[in-house]
Amino acid sequence: MSDWIDIAALDAVPARGARLVKTAHGCVAIFRNAMDEVFALDNACPHKNGPLAEGIVHGNAVTCPLHNWVISLETGMVQGPDEGQVTTYPARVEDGRIKLDVAFLKQRAVA
């Protein structure tokens, strides 16, 4: 069951940038692309736990600041020759506000 909660104004996250949401089980990175779509992913690169929120956002992907792994914001899949996947969470923009589905975040806590 979905449980959409209001997080912040879209403008709080820079276009082609990211901000963090703290949860009891670590940080989730909220990304905004150039088209004003938002994505939520665990803030940890599958390689060496690099903070993805600090990466450069291009198209629908982010490059990890530590070793330049490129991760799809849509699927969480690592692009190119490297392998791995980052957990993604449902996120959307409604009336200029960013909403997250906490139901999924709770599942994350269980897992």
Partner: peptide, 14 residues
Amino acid sequence: DTYQPLANLALEAA
């Protein structure tokens, strides 16, 4: 403020 987390759901979960 832009250096702070956008939200802290840990508190709400508690």
